[in-house]
Amino acid sequence: MINGDGDGILKTTMNKILLFFLILAPFAAEARPVSYPGGWTVMMQNSGDMHSIHTHYSPSAKYSIGLRNEYDRRDDFQNHSIQLNNLVKRWNNPDSQANFYLKSGIGYAIKKGNSDQSPSAFTGIAADWENRRYFVSYENRYVHANDITDDFHQSGRIGFAPYIGDFGDLHTWLMLQIDHHPEANNDDHLTVTPLLRLFYDTHLLETGINDNNDVLFNYIKRF
């Protein structure tokens, strides 16, 4: 536990790290939301904020459409949406790749216990850059559902591969994720999550724990 000046120093440091992300990674996604033409993907994400499952189909490498079901732990509601992901631009370079995505959805939000229900909508951008050694990403999302939620969230990542594998090998990444929730209370306003990404064949698994001791567990499977 850090108090007083230590807390201030920590917050200042975290704000600097956030600023670093926002400057360094303006074009930087936690996971690519568009697959190969004809490909299906299931993405499960679990964190201190949310549990979600997003299943999508990619008619082309430029966009995907799917269903997203999520439970927001912070505001205590479920949100069920149809989500469209557009790859707006990809930069294919000899040793790297960068992507810029637009992710939007419309659906229906239900407060726990059915006390409140409302149509919902969200939109956000995601961007990433990676080569075989380094990874940088940024994404944000604004969700609105009348009286149930009006929430903005952004996050960034940097990653490093301790070794470089070839096609078919187990790929390992060490990553640091910073989440920024402007409307959250002080403890959750800015969180830092060191995480491990393991990537083998069509499976991608991520696990980590943030500075509030919330566990992150993500799993992606492509078909």
Partner: peptide
């Protein structure tokens, strides 16, 4: 091929 940096990229090419 430019932009082929990960297994998902390689799998995309295989599928196509």
């Amino acid at each position: 091929v430019n932009g082929m940096v990960c297994d998902f990229c390689a799998q995309s090419l295989e599928k196509v």
